[in-house]
């Protein structure tokens, strides 16, 4: 808290610094506490309500401490059309909490995330900010259980995306038959698919 107060002092005392101040609080403290709101209000010379307003309007600002391991479920449509909603139901069942909640002990949390455009990984989740996907439903169950067991999420290899069968213009057409066999994505699909 002292560190945050010190950093806050360095921001200009302007209304326009509000979001920056709130981001700073969240980065330093993990969430926007009542004390943080009071400090920001005092620093920017506005009422606490004027801080509380934006702090609750923007979805990124949290009003309770974050869980130790946070699963952010991508709510985007690209995920949804390939089974994203099932991923949510699996996490809810495995964690025993609803979307937007933490488990009782604050070890795990399942929160809603907005699409950041890594749609080729759909359906996906972020585990402590790292993209994990594309997920099959079995992988989702396994992921949820490993998280419950407290395993390090970063250590798991992610599945490469399935490569489309050879639809690339055949290399023969470009270079003649003698070069045709060894390259082009026809070969690459054999080599790295799944």
């Amino acid at each position: 808290m002292e560190r945050f107060a010190g950093l806050l002092e360095q921001l200009p005392r302007q209304q326009g610094e509000m979001l920056r101040a709130l981001h700073l609080a969240q980065e330093e403290l993990g969430w926007i506490s009542r004390d943080a709101i009071r400090l920001i209000a005092r620093h920017l010379r506005v009422s606490e309500a004027q801080v509380y307003g934006p702090a609750t309007f923007y979805a990124e600002f949290r009003h309770s401490p974050p869980p130790k391991t946070l699963v952010t479920w991508c709510s985007g449509p690209s995920c949804r059309v390939v089974g994203g909603d099932r991923v949510r139901r699996i996490f809810e069942a495995e964690f025993g909490c609803r979307l937007g909640e933490n488990t009782e002990d604050d070890e795990l949390g399942l929160w809603l995330g907005q699409c950041n455009g890594t749609c080729e990984r759909a359906p996906m989740v972020w585990v402590n900010g790292r993209v994990v996907g594309p997920l099959t439903m079995l992988e989702t169950v396994k992921l949820a259980r490993r998280l419950k067991d407290g395993e390090d999420p970063i250590a798991w290899p992610r599945r490469p995306i399935k490569i489309a069968p050879a639809t690339f213009v055949a290399a023969e057409q470009v270079y003649g038959a003698e070069h045709g066999s060894g390259h082009g994505s026809g070969a690459s699909s054999e080599g790295t698919g799944q």
């Binding site: 690339f168 270079y175 060894g182 390259h183 994505s185 690459s188």
Partner: peptide
Amino acid sequence: EDAAAWLIGARLPSPGVA
């Protein structure tokens, strides 16, 4: 040939690569 498993294509012309 050796890196065919990863090969996508040549952005700048390269012998033997589409």
